[in-house]
Nucleic acid binder design. Sequence first.
RNA 1: GGACACAUAGCUCAGUUGGUUAGAGCGUUGCCCUCACAUGGCAGAGGUCGUAGGUUCGAUUCCUACUGUGUCCACCA
Length: 879
Amino acid sequence: MPEISARYNPKDVEEKRLKIWDALKPFHATARKSPKGAFTIVIPPPNVTGVLHMGHALNNTLQDILIRYKRMNGFDALWMPGTDHAGIATQNVVEKQLAKEGTTRDALGREKFMERLWDWKRHHGDTIINQLHKLGSSCDWDRTRFTMDDDYSGAVREVFVRLYERGLVYQGSYIINWCPRCETALADEEAEHKDANGHLWHIKYPFKDDPTQYVVVATTRPETMLGDTAVAVNPADERYKELVGRTIVLPLVDREIKIIADDFVDREFGSGAVKVTPAHDPNDFAMGRRHNLEFVNIMHPNGVMNKNAGRFSGLDRFEARKAVVKALEDEGWLLKIDPHAHAVRRCYRCDTIVEPYLSKQWFVKMKPLADKALEAFRAGKPRISPKRWEKVYENWLVETRDWCISRQIWWGHRIPVWYDGDGNTFCARTEAEALAQAKAKHGKDVLLKQDPDVLDTWFSSWLWPFATLGWPKENVDLKYFYPTHTLFTAPEIIFFWVARMVMAGIEFMDEVPFTDVVLHGTVRDAKGRKMSKSLGNAIDPLDVISEYGADALRFSMILNSGQDIFISKEKFEVGRNFANKLWNASRFVLMNVKPEARIKSFDEINPAELDLASRWVISRCQTALCEVSSAIEEYRYSEAENTLYEFFWSTYCDWYLEIIKGQLDNVNVQKTAFMVLETTIRMLHPFIPFVTEELFCEFQGDDKLLTLEAWPVPAAKFQDAKAEQEMGLVIGLISAIRNSRSQWNIKPADQIGITFSVDSGLSKKTVIDALAFIKRLTKISTFAFAQDVSGMSKCATGVAGDVKYFIPLGDLVDIDKEKARICAEIAEKEKAAAAIDGRLSNEGFVSKAPADVVEKDRQRMVDFRARATELKKTLECLI
RNA sequence: GGACACAUAGCUCAGUUGGUUAGAGCGUUGCCCUCACAUGGCAGAGGUCGUAGGUUCGAUUCCUACUGUGUCCACCA
């Protein structure tokens, strides 16, 4: 018996296992090693700036469960880890550092700033990876990738160039989402809609030829009027038909603008006339193009009004708003202000209100890519679960708009485009290549300037499933491990990342990059709020690991995972307690099972030699195994855990271990106790890898790694329906005794009579087994038996001496007190039987209900009546 | 404004093609420190399955409306 303490200590065990895994590298995947083939998962790369939060913990536990399960099932299981350079987020972090030092990135210059960024990455970039490691994630750590690794960056450039050559990237001036704080363009998906209570300002716009007459326009952003170059009305709007073509003098600015007609205008909204600001609104931009309007940009990139704003120049956009409103009011142009609830777009990185801004950016033409993805999806690739996300995904593909991929920041992949002085563009993999192109064009060497912008971070992450495997180089790993299998991720990034990965996979690998996408819930606090640092309601997974253990964190988290996951600190006690229970049950088994009974397989047990409880527990174990396997395959992890929890704790510990305490000298019992536990530990390993492997080593020797052991195979010959049924009766009997005992305060010395009716289906051997269990579990040692109801009277009248209680078919009865109760039960059973009788005499039921249901009902009625009859006899005996 | 999801015990959730007396964990109450485990054991209490209709012999389950909650999407200024 090894030295194991009564209380499980996760800290020591987890540290020890991690060391062993680091040294032996059991998670390293090698191509073409297993006949079963590859099973690949790529991690959704966390930001390098990331610090482990509960969302990561959940996401990675899900992945780990599956990859460990597949590994145990003999696949070449690869879980590819890595991090994302997170352009804006990372740059923000380092810029904050600079601010503390009293400097800025512009003062530092691009080169020095990049050095600082790489410096930061070297020192802090492994934080999240180390934390994932601590969680027990069985990634192939030697392959850890970073989206700005040299070869990965090569892949990014390669993709850009290919898309450019295929006409799928283009440069152009459009209204994009602009973050004035980050001073960069954002993709549509990066500008989040958030509700806000704003105002709707109604402004009078006077006619040139008659300043006393005016049209009214309504706007939520009055400062943009400074850039108005038209007023638009709907061509079918009778109110304004006559006015189209007339000239208006724009208040405050005195610019002359025309009234135009455009179908876009909604007659119902506001006054039916809309101010047109082509440089500051996407719709107005489109109208501006249609009507050849002037584009007046009134704002600097940092959100401060520029010289086009006239007397308002130099004001920040929100100060300008106040000033413009005040000026309009002062000059009599403001008609009214209505409160107006609407959605405002905010930067997903810094929450600053995004400005629709006209600028020259690079875009990916999405339609051709989305169409292929759509086609694949309609052919079933990838499968998405839960299914309700399918429509969301599909809709996005249908409605997708072009993707703005250039960012005016420095941390990221520089756009591989160079310009000469004459406005020519050279897109190339390297500067040398670009220079060669330029030379070919000009016939001589020319000086080129690279585009200063970098690419959207997602422009590198969308290549993750194949760029991590070495693409564009052809190699064995890429061929073997691609496409990957299951992608676990949060629904938030279904567009950012999932859909785009599918497109890239199809475009560059001719294959959808994963077969399954599993979208999991969001981790919330007990009150249902999202966990976030700013709310102060976040629970740090690392705290949980040090207090309860990584196994406890994983187990509790998965057990709680329905849709969204509500977490509070106490919830992790379940996992801690479970690991402790497992530890102690194992300790008990190790203490009582002799080495020769520590068998390797159920095959070393002969079912014919087993007692009832052992046949039962093995059968239940097989059932659990089948359920757990299929639950894992179908991503129903909390159900799998639930099954294991229930089987191990209730079936194995509470019933089986308690029952066998009197028979521990029986080698078959020892074998069964051991083998069932060993199987359970194997099944639990994907969920709680640390404690299970530690225990496995206690069982099978230190040289073994459970991680590399096989998933149990169900053995049909141990499925034993009869044992399950008989044991069900026995369990019912014991429960009844226990119940009555506490109810009537029976003492161990009291004698109890039991009758088994002849037709109960129990064999004599079973009854003998059962008696042993009952004695063990009830601590009541003296029983009197009779085979049928009539025998009961003998019990009752004291054949066995001074029998005070007896148990007819499962009910322990105090003779002196229980006559009334029996009467009540008789009435109840008769009533139930009558209800069924009524149903059975209903023709609709008999003719339309399935035959087995009718039969079951009939049987039930018979049972109820038999029981009632029996009780009546009992009553007679008692009298 | 559009789409979707959810509503079952005090709390968090199961409930698998409609069919016995609707389950579990936590919490709670009572009794047990029984030599694997008090991070434990045994037993109990607690639900007219959101509301109103409909289909059916029968509805927690299917349909409709409503109410409430949540999520995603969105260029009505």
